[in-house]
């Protein structure tokens, strides 16, 4: 005869074992394919390994010192900062505006699909499409500028160092905006309508209702949108690689392309791993700090 508490303990252990049995496989996969390679990368960052063969020497922090003395590294870091700056404002702001518009319009499904379409394309496809748009002589952008009488603004968007970075970011923003819109739209649909109605009864204008009531209540959605855009902006790679490979003369280089070039073009796997570790730490610190700050003041309704 088991007592009630013994029976409860038995049930509890059984439940824990069930949970563990479900978690074992994903944890093993995560360890093997995420944590393992990350640890490998960390180890290699302290070596001079070329990425080929099995011979290498330990070089301590030399790769990290080289990185912090390197012009290309700081150039890429600066470009990543520009990416983050633009990404947390433009696609987020546009996504929210579009979501609000779509939410209050008829034919919402159709509009949602239209704005979401870019999101269904990979960054490689987007990169190729925009490369054609930016062509100096036959690109749509320069032809359109000519057509509307702004021909003096025409330039070789991707091959001019002064415009290459911004041109790539615009292409990426075009895609990212769809995601922000869908997330905000879901957020808007989840808001308690009575709070907004109450504000209306209290005489708040539509702008006041949005800025003082709706937007604060969308805080958790904003946290998700900003986290996702920040992470993408920091690890941007495919679209940059396809459109400019980081050129011309590193004008659009980001840490992602710099790491790739060191690993696979320059056969400096040790140095490339050190750069990847720095990138990892930056993403971790930025995202964790941001989420901790945002979620610590979570709004509940």
């Amino acid at each position: 005869m088991f007592s009630k508490s013994q029976e409860y303990q038995k049930q509890k252990i059984k439940r824990i074992l069930t949970i563990i049995s479900f978690l074992v496989l994903p944890i093993l996969v995560y360890l093997a394919f995420v944590i393992g390679p990350a640890l490998y990368s960390m180890v290699y960052s302290f070596t001079d390994w070329s990425g080929v063969g099995s011979s290498f020497s330990w070089v301590g922090f030399e790769n990290y010192i080289t990185a912090f003395n390197s012009g290309p590294f700081f150039n890429a870091l600066k470009n990543n900062a520009i990416w983050v700056g633009i990404f947390i404002t433009v696609p987020t702001g546009l996504g929210l505006t579009l979501a609000k518009m779509v939410d209050s319009l008829k034919g919402e499904r159709f509009l949602k699909t239209i704005f979401y379409i870019p999101m269904t394309f990979s960054y490689v496809v987007i990169g190729l499409m925009w490369s054609w748009i930016y062509l100096p002589e036959s690109g749509i952008l320069n032809m359109a500028l000519d057509f509307v009488g702004f021909g003096f603004l025409k330039t070789a968007w991707l091959s001019e160092p002064s415009t290459a970075l911004i041109a790539v970011i615009i292409a990426a923003v075009w895609r990212q905006t769809g995601l922000s819109m869908v997330l905000y739209l879901a957020g808007l649909r989840g808001l308690p309508i009575e709070v907004i109605e109450q504000a209306k009864i209290d005489g708040a204008s539509s702008w006041q209702r949005f800025w003082k009531v709706t937007f604060p209540m969308l805080k958790s959605t904003t946290t998700v949108v900003l986290s996702l855009t920040m992470i993408y902006a920091l690890r941007a790679f495919a679209i940059v690689y396809v459109m400019t490979s980081g050129g011309p003369n590193r004008a659009s280089d980001v840490l992602g392309t710099l790491v790739y070039k060191q690993l696979f073009w320059n056969l400096r796997a040790g140095y490339g791993s050190a750069l990847a570790m720095i990138l990892f730490v930056i993403i971790l610190v930025v995202v964790v700090l941001f989420q901790w700050r945002m979620l610590s003041k979570e709004v509940s309704f």
């Binding site: 091959s159 001019e160 050129g247 011309p248 003369n249 060191q262 073009w265 320059n266 056969l267 400096r268």
Partner: peptide, 17 residues
Amino acid sequence: PPPVADAGLDTFIQIWQ
């Protein structure tokens, strides 16, 4: 060597522009 080639090619583009 590949890292010199990479840096050199960037420089040639810089000169070109």
